[in-house]
């Protein structure tokens, strides 16, 4: 009787741990995905900002070298 109870308990614990384990795997994957999304968004935003910055640097340079007489 007690052996059967203990087997049942072990089985129950096993199923629970197995399910917990799977849930944790899923959580880890979700966190990693979130990090990927954050990185991708950051890279995209950063690329856009860098392009704008380069563009502005170019404008600054052009202002500096713009001829005083207005010729090309």
């Amino acid at each position: 009787m007690s052996t059967s109870l203990s087997t049942k308990l072990i089985r129950k614990t096993f199923i629970k741990l197995h399910s917990d384990n799977k849930q944790l795997d899923l959580q880890i994957l979700a966190i990693k995905n979130e990090l990927d999304r954050i990185r991708a968004k950051y890279e995209q935003d950063m690329r856009n900002l860098q392009t704008t910055q380069e563009h502005l640097n170019q404008i600054e340079k052009e202002i500096k070298h713009f001829p005083k007489d207005g010729s090309k």
Partner: peptide, 12 residues
């Protein structure tokens, strides 16, 4: 499995 669960919880 218990050890895996503990280590994954810490990892999370």
């Amino acid at each position: 499995i218990e050890a895996a669960v503990t280590s994954k919880t810490e990892e999370i």
